[in-house]
Structure formats: structure tokens, C-alpha cells
Design a protein around this nucleic acid. Structure first.
Lengths: 240, 240
DNA sequence: TTGACTAACTTGTATATACAGGATACAATA
DNA sequence: TATTGTATCCTGTATATACAAGTTAGTCAA
């Protein structure tokens, strides 16, 4: 599947952890054992194990080995750039995407700032509602620079824009910066979402960058309070 | 400062980025140049650069070099296990910690689950209010296993528990898992915080683990809606 | 002038080796 | 019995080498 040796080993070990072949609390084979199993060098094994460690799947203990953590099997693993489609699939819940708006606009002041574009550039604006188990829970407003994404259709937006961008347009999405806060809900929120009695929404601002560090997408995702949940894993660096 | 070569190089480059010696959008010296500057091997340089990349400080571009990102200079960099004291210092705002409770308890059902302990074990319970610019904004409820943390005092809790744990007790905090959601505020919230008209609080559950992957602290941090903000940086892995 | 090629740079991957230092089991010793 | 030493696992760090592959600037020929 992968060209990369260490990434395919990472992937293989990860699937063994997720399938429960390696169980939480137990040790995975030692680096030297894995060297023999995968017929590669120790450094290559270590690259794969370090990735697993950074992403919170294993804990390496000097002198002992690597044990499988169980901190990852959570309800709502948004952490780490996952798309709505992937997420809905993981949760196994019936979900639907409704495209409410799809148009080309000129950026206003706020958008110029968020997308780092001039007033004359064309911007795709996509407004979608995410329905989970029959309830309209999330309002997604995506903005793409038309220079980078020349064409979009209702059909693409209903499926997965990310899949289209990565597979069709061969764009390499590299990293994203997310920002969360809580805000009073707007008229737009009330129009598109089933808000019940709630007066506030959780806003997630998402800035997505390509391989060459250029910003190409700005997304504002507005969640109903009671349905929002976020999980984060972080390691601490010790100097000394 | 550090024993580790690659960590001290990481630290040195990081401080140069933060001080603006390396400016956002510009390239840092190439790997081979850094090899000469730090008189070390390329692999060691690459370890330092990969850390910077994972933490969102630089973007490495094949064939070109590493450019400095500016996505990190945000108001509220909680991402990555930072303590309240460190945070308040970074923001440069006048802040105060008020210890409201400090006692040893036996865990109830919820706590038994969160801290993975039996009903007979002693647990430190610390309740603190974080005051920023005169307003009581955050309610922190910390629970420590007394086996791991035998002694605590009001004085320690007012300063930084983390500093005490790491410097005095030599505990090696390794990683943490955070969980966020929004909840209706409780009587306790109303008692301790200046909640204004808000009916909900943002709850951050924090599970902190030591080097040997043992859970030793559970924290529930309750934030007033309008003062909550969280920033996250994530890279996407491509399996080609 | 244009276009193709090349040389010299960059980062990415894979390998091998060496040694430091933590964990553990077991045998030797007091 | 209790302790100490030792051999042997383990992971962590540092180094060197080789080649792949992307970028860029300059050269040279059509």
C-alpha cells in the first residue's frame, strides 16, 4: 500500500492495535524482534514506533519495551485532521450532509484576514449542515481559494470534499490549526440547525495548509453545545 | 542545559524562532549548514527539526528547505500540556490562584473510574479557583493518588503543583489526554465562579500519566464560557 | 529567444555500527 | 538469608554512509 517502509510498518502495527491483536497494557514485540519480523533495520522500526508513541498508541519504556495504551478508544477522536465522513464512519451512526449554499463570492474583511487573500480574488463558499441521527447538529462553512480549487459541485460537497481534493486534484494537505471557543448563536445558526433551547454554539475555526505551507482553506464549524466533544493527546518534552 | 544534543538544538532553534531571529516565512539554515554550526551529525539535526515540525514551528519542504511558520503565535496556546502558571506568565496578565479545598478523601464511583483506584485508597482532593484580572474564571478540581503524591500543602497548591511534582518528587510526567465538552453549570460552579448570566460551562477533563504509563492525576477544569479558548495543531499523515 | 540538460543544492529514506543506561533474572558471595 | 555482581535483555542517543528525489540556477545548443 505505502511506498514507505516505516509508514507501512506503522500502519500494520496500528491496525494490529486497533484490531486487538496487541491488547492495551501488554507489550508489543521488542525492536529487535520487529527488525526480524519486518526484515528491516532498527532505525526504520524505531521511526514507526515513535510515530505510534507520538499519536498516543504506545508508551515506550527504556529497558523494558513498548506497551499498548488504551487512551485512544474514545467516542469522538477529532484530534488529528479527520474529515466528517471518516468520523461518521468510525462512529457508525447514520449521518447525512446537506449542502445549503454553494457559490463563488468576493471576500469580506473578515474572510480576507482568515484566508490571506485580496478583495479581488474569487472564493468558493460552501455551507453544509451535518445531520446525525436525524438531528441537524453541525453547521460547516467552508471557504476555498478558487486559484487552488477551480471547480466544485453540489455532488462533491455532499460526498467528501477532502477526498476530491486529495484524490482528484492531488492536493497534499499537510497540517491544520484549529481554534475553539463558545459564541452566542446567530440568526444563521437558528435557521439551519436544530438548536433546542441552547443560546450558544461551539465554534471551531480550522485553517488548513498544503505541503508548501500555503493556506488554502478556512472552515468555520458551528456545533450544538450538547453534541460537541473533543479529545486531545499531548506529550510533554523533558529538557534534561 | 540539556544532556541531549538534539533536544538542546531543538531548544536553541525554538528560542531563535520565538525571539524572531528566524522570522516567519523565511528559511532557517539547511540541515548541512546546521550540521556545521552545531558540530554534529545530520541525523541529530534532523531529530531536532522533526520535533519543530511536529509542534508546528516549521514546515520542511523537500528540495527547498525548512521555513518558519507563524501559526503558533496565538493568544491561548494550551495545546501541549502547559500549566496554569506557565500560561498566565505567557499571557502576562495579572492572575491569582485561590485554594478553596485541600483534603484527603475516599473515591466515589465516578472518581474510582476516572483514577482507576479502589474504594479503600486515599485520594488528595484539591479545589482551586483561578482568578484572571480580578474575575473568578476557572474552577480546577484535581485528584491525586496519595500513593504517588504522599504530601501536599496549601502553599504548594497556591504556587505550582507541577513544579513541586517534577522538581521535588522527581515524578516524570509523560503524557496527558484531554477531553472537552460543554455542561450545564452546577451549584458548585455558581458558588465558586463569577458566572454572570451564563448557564453552561466548558469542562476539560485531563488525565495525566507518568513515564511508566501509570495514571496518577485526574483533573476537571471548569471554564466560564466566554473566557474559554483552545488551540490545536495537527499534522496529517499521508500513506501515499 | 527558447528549451533541454546538467550540476549543485535541498530534504527523505534506509542501513549499519557503537555505546550508554535502565530492567531483570540468576548465580556467587558474605 | 541477604546482598552483590554479572550477563543479557531492553530502549535511547550519536554517528557515518548511501542513494532517492525535489528545486533551482546556469549552460549550451537548436
Amino acid at each position: 500500500m505505502s511506498e514507505n517502509k516505516y509508514l507501512s510498518i506503522y500502519n500494520d502495527l496500528l491496525s494490529k492495535i486497533e484490531k486487538g491483536i496487541f491488547k492495551p497494557g501488554t507489550k508489543i514485540p521488542s525492536e529487535n524482534q520487529l527488525v526480524e519480523q519486518y526484515e528491516t533495520s532498527r532505525e526504520t522500526i524505531r521511526k514507526a514506533l515513535n510515530l505510534l508513541s507520538e499519536h498516543g498508541y504506545i508508551q515506550k519504556i527504556k529497558g523494558k519495551g513498548s506497551i499498548v495504551l488504551d487512551v485512544r478508544k474514545f467516542d469522538f477522536p477529532i484530534s488529528g485532521l479527520i474529515s466528517f465522513k471518516e468520523l461518521a464512519q468510525k462512529l457508525g451512526k447514520p449521518s447525512r450532509t446537506i449542502v445549503e449554499q454553494l457559490e463563488i463570492i468576493k471576500p469580506d474583511e473578515a474572510l480576507k484576514k482568515h484566508l490571506h487573500v485580496t478583495a479581488r480574488e474569487d472564493i468558493w463558499k460552501v455551507v453544509r449542515v451535518r445531520e446525525i441521527e436525524g438531528e441537524r447538529i453541525i453547521l460547516d462553512k467552508d471557504f476555498f481559494n478558487k486559484k487552488v480549487v477551480p471547480f466544485l459541485s453540489k455532488d462533491i460537497c455532499e460526498r467528501s470534499i477532502y477526498e476530491y481534493l486529495e484524490k482528484e486534484l492531488q492536493l497534499k494537505i499537510s497540517f491544520a490549526k484549529k481554534e475553539f471557543f463558545v459564541e452566542e448563536c446567530t440568526e444563521e445558526d437558528r435557521m439551519y440547525l436544530h438548536l433546542k433551547q441552547y443560546t450558544h454554539v461551539v465554534v471551531v475555526r480550522n485553517y488548513v495548509y498544503l505541503d508548501d505551507a500555503s493556506l488554502f482553506q478556512y472552515t468555520e464549524s458551528r456545533h450544538r453545545l450538547d453534541k460537541f466533544r473533543f479529545v486531545d493527546f499531548a506529550r510533554r518534552i523533558h529538557l534534561h
